[in-house]
Amino acid sequence: MKAVLRWAGLVLLAGLALQLFFIGRIAAMGVVAPESTAFQRSEAWAQLAGRQGLHWRQQWLPYADIGDHLKRAVIASEDDGFVNHDGVDWEAVEKAWDRNARAQERAAQRLEAAPSRPARPARIVGGSTITQQLAKNLLLSGERTLVRKGQEFVLTLALEHLLTKQRILEIYLNSVEWGDGIFGAEAAAQHYFKKSASRLTASEAARLAVMLPQPKRFEKTPQSAYLAGRTRVIVGRMASAELP
């Protein structure tokens, strides 16, 4: 029993040390821009393991130098309550649960109606805020487990309490993936439109924002009807998007 208690104590201490490390990293980001994120490092390793080698585009822009069109477009597309929530949009989470439950039910009905057909997985949607996405990409792995989701929640609260909304959005826009080896707003603007992120039009900014959930897919299908239609929707929402 003593050995079990000793090991349990060591595990708790290791967990506490990890949380303190994460919180220290986040606090430092208030004044020092992160050189890379956990997601970026994972992508870099995947590139190095491939045939083409490492190809990487990223250039940090201060918050003031990122055009308001892109800020509004990303907020309108990814997290329209960004300036008002405390890191988690519980209403969006509830809606995502409902949509996923309905999708799973429809998938089960299709399987019951045609059991011989290959099963088509239900499309799962999330309700993650910009802060939650940043927490995941900055410091966590890509695995989907309850433990990792709990860690994401803790880091989300730390980001909201230790950094300003402007700083959170600044780090997010400078580190998020916008294609294969393309990270951050400036690299994306230069790659897709041959101009700085400060000079993007409303339509160009909206198109970049719509790419964010699946940037590698849309990089290969720039003429996608969905991409064009969703871009028009986001342009219409941008005027009401509140900036921090």
Rank of each mutant, 00 (worst) to 15 (best):
V31I: 03
V154M: 15
P34Y: 02
L16E: 14
V74A: 02
L134W: 03
I66K: 00
V88W: 03
I26L: 00
L227K: 08
R25G: 01
D89R: 04
A38S: 09
L54I: 03
F193T: 02
T37G: 07
G30F: 01
M238L: 04
L139W: 09
T201Q: 02
Q59P: 05
K71F: 01
S36F: 07
A92W: 02
L157K: 05
G15T: 10
R123L: 13
G15Q: 12
G236S: 01
A44N: 05
A38T: 10
A185H: 08
L173A: 06
L5C: 11
R120M: 07
P34D: 07
K136G: 02
Q59M: 05
P244C: 06
R144E: 08
N174M: 11
S42Y: 13
R199C: 14
A225G: 08
H191Q: 13
L111C: 04
S198F: 14
Q104Y: 12
R51H: 06
R106H: 12
F153W: 15
A28F: 00
L140K: 09
A122S: 02
R123W: 06
A101G: 11
A158K: 05
V4R: 14
L163G: 01
S240R: 15
Q40M: 09
Q109H: 10
Y226H: 10
H191A: 12
L61R: 11
S224L: 08
A76P: 15
A38V: 14
Q166H: 12
A64C: 04
E242K: 14
A103S: 06
T164L: 01
A241Y: 08
E152C: 07
L162Q: 04
E78Q: 11
A205D: 08
R148M: 05
V83D: 12
G127H: 02
V31P: 00
V233W: 14
G181C: 04
A158R: 04
G150N: 07
E105G: 13
I130V: 02
R148C: 05
R167T: 07
L54Y: 00
G15K: 07
G24N: 04
I124Q: 11
P244E: 10
R25N: 09
A239F: 14
L146Y: 15
A28D: 02
Q52H: 10
R207Y: 04
A33I: 10
G179T: 10
G179V: 08
F39Y: 13
Q40I: 12
D98S: 12
A135Y: 10
A96F: 04
A205F: 09
A185E: 08
R110S: 05
L48S: 00
L18N: 08
F82R: 01
R199L: 12
E242Y: 08
T231L: 06
D98H: 13
H191K: 14
Q133W: 05
A119I: 14
I23T: 11
N137M: 11
A209G: 15
E105I: 14
E186I: 04
K194H: 12
E177Y: 06
W45L: 13
K165F: 03
R41C: 07
Q151A: 11
E186W: 01
R110D: 11
G87P: 07
D86N: 15
R167D: 04
D68K: 15
N174H: 06
I130M: 01
